[in-house]
Amino acid sequence: MRCYWDEEDIWFYLEVDDEDWVIRQVELEGPERTPIAAASLAEWRRAQETGRLATYESSFGITTERPVSEGEDHDPEPLTCDEFEQVWNTARRLIADRPS
């Protein structure tokens, strides 16, 4: 799904599990839709276990820490898996290519 937060001009693209927990999240900011986050819950957990959490979060951000169904008012738009994957892959590539 995707949701728009107009106060910050950010699009949130979310992949959720059966219980509405976010497992991957992309955030695109501004009219250029610049990726500012592309986080995976599984990767975040691995980074935490290996002591690399700060590095992971500074590069890729974090996922929402509660089920989407408990979130603020939003009007989610459904996406296909292919649509999400395209946004995910593009955001990850652009974030990975940024100078440190």
Rank of each mutant, 00 (worst) to 15 (best):
M1F: 15
W44A: 07
Q48T: 12
E83Q: 14
W21G: 01
R24E: 13
C81G: 11
L94D: 12
S40Y: 01
E19F: 12
L53Y: 04
E8Q: 12
Q48W: 06
E49N: 08
P31I: 07
L41C: 01
W11Q: 03
S69V: 10
P31F: 09
W44L: 14
S69W: 11
R33S: 05
E65T: 12
E70P: 03
W88S: 11
S58N: 11
D6Q: 11
E7R: 12
E72D: 10
E83F: 04
L94M: 13
S59Y: 03
W88T: 08
T80F: 03
W5Q: 13
V87K: 06
C3G: 09
A54L: 12
R46F: 03
G51I: 01
L79R: 06
D17M: 02
L79F: 04
E27L: 14
L41P: 01
E29L: 05
D75S: 14
V16H: 02
I95S: 04
S40E: 01
G71I: 07
T50L: 07
G51C: 02
A54D: 13
T55Y: 08
A37K: 09
A37Y: 03
V22W: 08
R46C: 02
Y56N: 00
P78N: 10
E70N: 09
P67Y: 07
L79S: 04
E43R: 06
W88D: 09
S58C: 05
C81I: 14
W21Y: 14
I36T: 14
E83L: 04
W5L: 15
R52M: 02
A47P: 00
S59D: 09
E77H: 09
E7C: 08
V16I: 10
R98D: 09
A54N: 05
L94F: 06
E49Q: 10
E85P: 04
R66N: 11
Y56P: 00
E70Q: 09
L79H: 05
I95C: 05
A91H: 11
R45M: 06
T50Q: 06
A39I: 00
H74G: 15
E85H: 07
R93W: 04
S40H: 00
Y4H: 14
E7Y: 11
S40N: 02
N89H: 08
Y4D: 05
T34M: 12
D18T: 04
D82Q: 08
L94H: 09
E49P: 01
E77S: 07
R33F: 07
P78T: 13
R52N: 05
F12A: 10
A54E: 13
V16W: 02
E7M: 13
R2A: 01
W21Q: 09
F84V: 06
Q48G: 09
Q86Y: 08
